[in-house]
């Protein structure tokens, strides 16, 4: 059946060379490669408890993609020509696309929003695109070097999506206070039911604001996690039956990863423009 080699240092239940059940296979593929920040032990499931654990796979893949992205962008940015060509065309299309999407919604003058939207869109897209790698590919290669667990889709890790959505959340709060100042208090107390129901208004407003990062993060995480899970389930099929469903799902996922990256970016812009607009 399914063969999952395990490095000797791992303390998991799957024994070296043993055939495992589909449930164990799926479970194995849902485990992160972890680094316990208290004991500095890598890849130990027993140690992967509590808050002070770093998901090395998520962190490294997203870091490599992120650094690769900004290095690429910087590479193009310092070589901007009057007559564009090749890579510059591509980057200009992306920048123009993001700029246009923002200018349709947002009318403030933030120097932060546009570059942040570009990074969100392209970085999230790249991280999502890791989904299109075969589920066993990276892990099988790394297994040769004794790495037992490796999840290669950073956005299927809620830490990634929540980190970004919390950053957006803090910016929403920051701009709300910066732009509206004392008007914000009035707005929180009187909208939408008027001054007499101010406790209700306040509760409504707080829920509304807190739901924004939640919905942002969970939408992306849910989509990518579910997508990855379906790929894992397809990988459980016999080898002759994986091609067609895997291909169909991958083609469908090309749409999903792009769309989710765009939605994350667009909602960020919308939320921040709402923070700028007074009711």
């Amino acid at each position: 059946m399914f063969y999952v080699p395990v490095s000797s240092s791992g303390g998991d239940t799957v024994n070296t060379g043993a055939a495992i059940t589909p449930a164990q296979y799926v479970q194995h593929h849902l485990e992160h490669l972890t680094l316990n920040l208290r004991t500095f032990r890598v890849g130990d499931l027993q140690e992967a408890q509590g808050f002070w654990v770093l998901n090395l796979d998520t962190f490294l893949v997203s870091l490599i993609l992120g650094i690769g992205l900004v290095v690429f962008l910087r590479f193009v940015a310092v070589r901007m020509r009057e007559v564009p060509g090749g890579l510059q065309n591509f980057v200009e299309i992306m920048v123009g696309f993001v700029d246009k999407s923002i200018s349709e919604v947002y009318h403030g003058k933030s120097k932060l929003l546009a570059p942040m939207s570009l990074i969100i869109f392209m970085w999230v897209f790249l991280m999502n695109a890791m989904d299109l790698l075969p589920v066993d590919l990276l892990w099988r290669i790394l297994d040769l070097f004794g790495v037992t667990y490796f999840k290669n889709v950073p956005t299927a890790d809620p830490n990634v999506t929540f980190a970004m959505s919390l950053a957006v959340f803090f910016l929403i709060i920051f701009y709300n206070i910066k732009i509206k100042k004392f008007h914000l208090a009035k707005e929180m107390l009187t909208v939408p039911f008027g001054g007499y129901l101010f406790p209700l208004n306040l509760v409504f407003r707080l829920i509304e604001e807190c739901v924004k990062p939640l919905s942002l993060a969970l939408r992306l995480f849910g989509n990518m996690f579910a997508g990855e899970l379906v790929f894992i389930l397809i990988a459980l099929l016999p080898w002759w039956g994986q091609g067609l469903p895997g291909g169909i799902w991958a083609i469908f996922h090309i749409l999903v990863i792009t769309l989710q990256a765009f939605i994350f970016m667009m909602l960020t812009v919308v939320y921040l423009s709402m923070a700028h607009d007074t009711h």
Partner: peptide, 10 residues
């Protein structure tokens, strides 16, 4: 799975 220090790193 679950929220851990990765959040801070990210």
């Amino acid at each position: 799975m679950g929220i851990n220090a990765t959040l801070i790193g990210q």
